[in-house]
Simulated assay, not measured.
Amino acid sequence: MSVMTPIAEPPELKRYSGLQRAAMLMLALGQEHGASIWEQLSTDEIKELSSAIAQLGRVPANVVEHLLISFSGEVSSMASLHGSYETTERLLRGVLPGEKVKDIMEDIRGPSGRTMWDKLSNVNESVLAAYLKNEYPQTVAVILSKLSSDHAARVLSELPQDFSTDVIMRMLRMDTVQKEVIQEVEQTLRTEFMSNLSRSQRRDPHETMAEIFNALDRSSEEAMLAALDDRAPEAAERIRALMFTFDDLANLLPAAISAIVRNADKREMALALKGAPDPMKQLFFSTMTERAAKLMKEEMGSMGPVRARDCEDAQTAMVRLAKSLADRGEIMLVDPKSDDGLIY
């Protein structure tokens, strides 16, 4: 009887963790040989291993061969394995019930969180409150008790006052919730709320185009909008309404302009203002100290002639800075989509 010569450990193997090596083995074993192993794993272990498979990417054949030395004759003919969400789902469907596979894939696919409660914590409080206000107060109490305290507080503040008070009373009187009740609530949220949310939150393509147009240089932006005016005037008008441009900075409160001045790159701001109309320049100067305004004017004067494109790029950078500050809640922007004025 011949003895198989051990294969030296490939150097690439060192970059894979134990969990990743287990994922490679299960992917290589496939449905037929791996079924009995999958059946011995808990749901959490299956999720962890499935997530590792889904993120595995390509694995060199010599690494797989080393891990599956007993099957080296079969595996060595492979160029590689490719772990992906699709191959993971196909593999699981061969060994697990369909509903269980669906739950597992939902958990490992989404960046929003590992569990249903993680996912729910990433849902806007107004959206969540709009759904919960139609549920039984006891059900809402169970759901809020599983969320982080700050998120639960924001959701409560969005609910009708009488209803929220009822929910609070239920939470105060709530004993340990049975596991079956939690599972039933999770299933309802998954089938009714999260599935509807994913369909309803498909992004308006006009918003995407407005962001793209914001990133264009001025001449390209004007040319494309003019062309769109001819073919789809309503779409062009909507995109214009959704765009936030350098000119819109003139509508900001002085405190917001001051925050932009403090955070902006001074050279970039000088370049942006050099190509701006005088009222815009005066607006920015008015938020600076006399000395800072003098230095900024000197900086602009020392630049000499500059390309219009460079000024436009600097103005685009200023708009990005304003949006970034608004996203962090440091300033308020005027919303061109709203007649009411200000958003946070």
Rank of each mutant, 00 (worst) to 15 (best):
9 E>V: 14
21 R>L: 02
23 A>P: 01
24 M>D: 05
26 M>L: 15
26 M>G: 07
29 L>C: 06
32 E>C: 07
39 E>V: 09
54 A>I: 03
56 L>S: 06
58 R>I: 09
70 S>V: 08
72 S>Y: 05
78 M>P: 00
80 S>F: 13
83 G>W: 04
102 K>P: 01
102 K>S: 15
105 M>G: 09
111 P>Y: 08
113 G>T: 07
115 T>E: 13
124 N>Y: 01
124 N>V: 02
126 S>T: 13
128 L>R: 08
135 E>A: 10
145 S>Y: 10
146 K>R: 15
154 R>F: 06
163 F>Q: 03
173 R>G: 04
174 M>F: 13
176 T>E: 11
182 I>H: 12
191 T>V: 09
197 L>W: 00
198 S>M: 09
199 R>H: 09
201 Q>W: 02
203 R>L: 12
208 T>M: 12
222 E>F: 03
226 A>Q: 05
233 P>S: 15
235 A>K: 06
235 A>F: 02
249 L>K: 00
252 L>G: 03
254 P>D: 07
256 A>C: 00
260 I>S: 02
263 N>V: 03
266 K>S: 12
273 L>Y: 01
282 Q>L: 11
283 L>K: 02
289 T>E: 11
290 E>C: 07
297 K>Y: 06
301 G>S: 13
318 M>Q: 14
324 S>Q: 11
327 D>R: 04
327 D>T: 02
327 D>M: 02
339 D>N: 07
339 D>V: 08
